[in-house]
Design a protein around this nucleic acid. Structure first.
Lengths: 194, 194
DNA sequence: ACCTGAACACCGTTCAAGT
DNA sequence: ACCTGAACACCGTTCAAGT
């Protein structure tokens, strides 16, 4: 009678477990054990593991730091991208969790809206701004996914880094370069009209 | 004594199974059954499931159609990107399989080299060209991963598509837009110097 | 409202032993 | 060289039943 849990407890504990041991070790049974409960008890709080992960993904993205709106849109877009990357990096396997729920239309729409809003003062059409937000979000999540996969692979002990793809642990040069290319490409497209 | 297999048989059958039933159903036990063999027999051909998937990923990317080299580098870069996307789309969950091995430095280096070579005639430095190849490859794999995830989610039956992120089943507008932004961004950066 | 206990239908991997 | 058989240590999920 001491430990009756809420859905919030379950999600919070899942987030802790994720950060400590990674997604592979975030099983319903381990989560239950961390809550001092049988695995079957989790299914009272959540319909299945997938939905649980969607809740975890939302929590991860919620923590993305807010960004100042007083710069021009390219600077703001870069700042939003950096904030999202940092949020994903803040939890072990954060990008993979978010990626796995993004297709379900469950998570990440708040993040998408932030990227969309960032270009509000540009001369682009809404359609272009939506496409750009999607491109950027996909690049960000995909990139951090690979960043985190890599540091895990390195921990396990793989081959020595050779390609640029592999030697990106030095603070995300590929990330910055990619965001710059996308933002510059968007500016070129919009500017060509103005 | 009729069915003794080679490693190539195993990989080829894995590819068939992947395409027919998806990555979730590509288990060592099902693969063994498809080969009329015990699951343990697979471990003679391959050290573990991860390596098997890396071999499958290589096979998927090998089939990327060759691209003409007689256009300017931006056109070639776009063509290479399209060829890689088509290769990933040719097999069910192709992008996820490739994505899962890319971090290990096992698969995808051939694809990366193709993207690198495509900018050989540009005025960019080697470092810039390597970064651009990484950005493009990450965007391509990440995007197709999401495309394929999505069509799976739609098949299972999720909510109605609302965001641009979700209504991309109409032939990849986000993909084309993303590749254009990245290529244009790269051109802007290189052109600013010439 | 929240949880237990037991079961179902699976996994990847190891290893001695066979041919 | 290639495979079997049996086992180990797990999974996610369901469901009747308890408090």
């Amino acid at each position: 009678m001491t430990t009756r849990h809420s859905r919030d407890d379950v999600v919070a504990t899942a987030l802790d477990l994720l950060d400590e041991h990674g997604l592979a070790d975030l099983t319903m049974r381990r989560l239950a054990a961390a809550l001092d409960v049988q695995a079957s008890a989790l299914y009272w709080h959540v319909p299945n593991k997938q939905s649980l992960l969607a809740l975890v993904a939302d929590r991860i993205l919620e923590r993305a730091r807010p960004v100042e709106h007083d710069h021009d849109w390219p600077a703001r877009l870069r700042a939003e991208s950096g904030a999202l990357r940092d949020a994903l990096l803040a939890y072990r396997d954060g990008a993979e969790v978010v990626s796995s729920t993004i297709a379900l239309g469950l998570g990440a729409s708040a993040a998408w809206v932030r990227l969309l809003e960032a270009t509000a003062t540009s001369d682009a059409t809404l359609d272009e701004r939506e496409l750009a937000a999607s491109v950027l979000l996909e690049f960000i999540v995909g990139h951090v996914f690979r960043e985190q996969q890599q540091s895990h692979a390195d921990a396990v002990g793989a081959a020595a880094p050779e390609r640029a793809l592999d030697r990106d642990l030095d603070g995300g040069r590929v990330f910055g370069f990619g965001v710059d290319l996308i933002v510059d490409g968007f500016r070129a497209r919009v500017g060509a009209r103005a």
